[in-house]
């Protein structure tokens, strides 16, 4: 663990965000005001907002991991995912929303990476909210210019023979990388395989865990 002060870490292992006991900011004031105006105008309700917060909280990389594991173990599903990832994941019961989802299968000679240079588009319906680095200037700027070097900063070294293909998201479509199935997992069922699929391996900045 790089952190020494465990008292200040949340259950997710990250420092606690300064939160409700900090002085009220201008933008927090605006959020409260907008929320109340939308409720007063009948656009939404307090319970609908709470349900939406809960729904987003419930989305996490395990959802994407189950898609990847099924791709590895179910050839019919794999074909369907490549044909239309939005439809295939909806059939698994995921709320993919209106945007087009595209699955990017890695091969031993191809490593896919996803970025959004213009904004912060991310497959949030399958992976949850994006990590902070995904939205950073450094990642957005450099990934399309020096992907191999960027990857190395994430601890992933690739041989020069492996092509790195960077995919720039748009507002209307999202990507999910299908990492290579780890060797030594031939007899594994999908549930167990899903435990190897990391968030970053589905963005292309990481690899699955070793079995």
């Amino acid at each position: 663990m790089p952190h020494d002060h465990h008292d200040h870490l949340s259950p997710s292992g990250h420092p606690f965000r300064k939160d409700n006991d900090e002085p009220l900011t201008y933008w927090q004031t605006m959020e409260i005001a907008i929320r109340e105006l939308l409720i007063e105008k009948g656009v939404t309700t307090a319970s609908e907002i709470a349900r939406q917060v809960d729904a987003m909280d419930a989305r996490n990389p395990a959802m994407g991991a189950s898609v990847v594991a099924r791709y590895w173990t179910d050839p019919d599903f794999a074909a369907a995912l490549l044909e239309d990832a939005s439809a295939a994941t909806r059939q698994m019961g995921f709320d993919i929303g209106p945007m087009k989802l595209i699955a990017l299968p890695n091969t031993p000679m191809l490593h896919d990476m996803v970025v959004c240079t213009l904004c912060s588009c991310y497959p949030r319906n399958l992976l949850g909210l994006p990590p902070d680095w995904y939205k950073s200037r450094a990642y957005r700027s450099r990934t399309v210019k020096e992907p191999r070097k960027t990857l190395e900063e994430f601890g992933v070294t690739t041989s020069k023979e492996v092509e790195i293909r960077v995919h720039d998201s748009t507002a209307d479509m999202r990507y999910i990388v299908i990492p290579n199935r780890p060797v030594g997992t031939d007899s594994w069922q999908a549930d167990r395989l899903a435990g190897l699929v990391t968030r970053d391996s589905m963005i292309g900045t990481g690899l699955p865990a070793h079995p």
Partner: peptide, 11 residues
């Protein structure tokens, strides 16, 4: 439109 610019390490 930041793609391709030079920037520091990934935070």
């Amino acid at each position: 439109d930041m793609g391709g610019e030079l920037a520091g390490p990934i935070p």
